[in-house]
Nucleic acid binder design. Structure first.
Lengths: 184, 184
DNA sequence: ACCTGAACACCGTTCAAGT
DNA sequence: ACCTGAACACCGTTCAAGT
């Protein structure tokens, strides 16, 4: 690995932005995986010295937090008038499909610190709304939400192993959970 | 962190054993957590140089694999004559209680590479046996096994967040899953 | 405010010795 | 066979500069 030194003297701008750093992180993640995404490798991609990143990002954890929440933007939320039970299944299945693109990211970061970004909030609200229309509210709804979230994230984290059969199992288990939730 | 140099010249034995290395790894894990368990910190505990460990352990991944399987030895398998449905619930609940002792270990290692040790095998066989006695065999049994395993490990990996409510939710979701499994 | 240089305190792992 | 010394190729992060 040749360490190309930045062709800039101290004080000269590199044109870095919070947005550009995030975009590069997403790109590096999909090219090199979660183990290839480090502050130093990211700096290499952007042709800056490693510490330059800290002008646009608090630290690695905060960066990955944002990358993860960006990922959740792709999840399809069912339209307002959709059938609640079917909508819940669609929403969780879409979340699963989105997350299995980066299972390692899910297991190492989502599992260890959770998602608290805007998109995560939006999905949580959507699930809660669907549950309410299915007749589940209050404490049981919060419990159902937790079960659905942990179940889906857990399966997504397992994805690198045996994708094919795992997705089928995810679907079967999800049906059992939803049957239990709406009939309680 | 003072780096105490090993008081040994090259060629002198330190009395290391595979068993002693593993025991020290378990101890260091429960004292310093998964982030505090490194090959170098482990070597420090054992008063040897870092590379000495590689005479007794293939690498860090293999070491943690064994530590994880050791952990699973604590899981209580229900007696042979137990009620299948109740036995399945007990077995998964015991697995959950065992794993939440080290949620980070679960999320980083169990999720990313799975468990293939002797104890993991033993638990898988136990679940399969209980499923068979509950009338579930063949492909549906393998699917049920996958769902139960991923569900339980997923919840265990989430444990560092809100322990109290999470355990209740784990139980509720587990009941829903088992109801779906035995009635299919 | 945004960047570099240099440094701090780490990693996992390998290779060539020494007994 | 089991260990040390030294090294390789990395980490995340901080602090003092420079413009």
């Amino acid at each position: 690995m040749t360490t190309v030194p930045p062709a800039r003297s101290p004080g000269q701008r590199a044109g870095l932005t919070h947005e550009r750093v995030l975009a590069a992180a997403r790109e590096l993640l999909s090219e090199a995986g979660v183990d290839g995404l480090s502050m130093r490798s990211l700096a290499r991609c952007l042709q800056v010295s490693p510490n330059a990143l800290y002008s646009h990002v608090e630290n690695k954890l905060a960066l990955i937090d944002e990358v993860l929440d960006d990922l959740l933007a792709e999840v399809e939320v069912p339209p307002a008038g959709a059938d609640p039970a079917a909508g819940l299944h669609q929403l969780m299945a879409s979340t699963y499909r989105t997350l299995i693109a980066h299972p390692e990211l899910v297991s190492v970061y989502l599992m260890r610190q959770g998602a608290r970004g805007a998109n995560a909030q939006r999905l949580g609200d959507a699930v809660t709304g669907l549950l309410a229309r299915a007749g589940v509210a209050g404490a049981p709804a919060r419990e159902a939400l937790r079960v659905l979230i942990v179940y889906t994230i857990g399966f997504a984290a397992f994805a690198p192993r045996d994708d094919r059969e795992l997705t089928g199992s995810f679907d079967a288990g999800l049906r059992w959970l939803l049957a239990g939730i709406v009939s309680s």
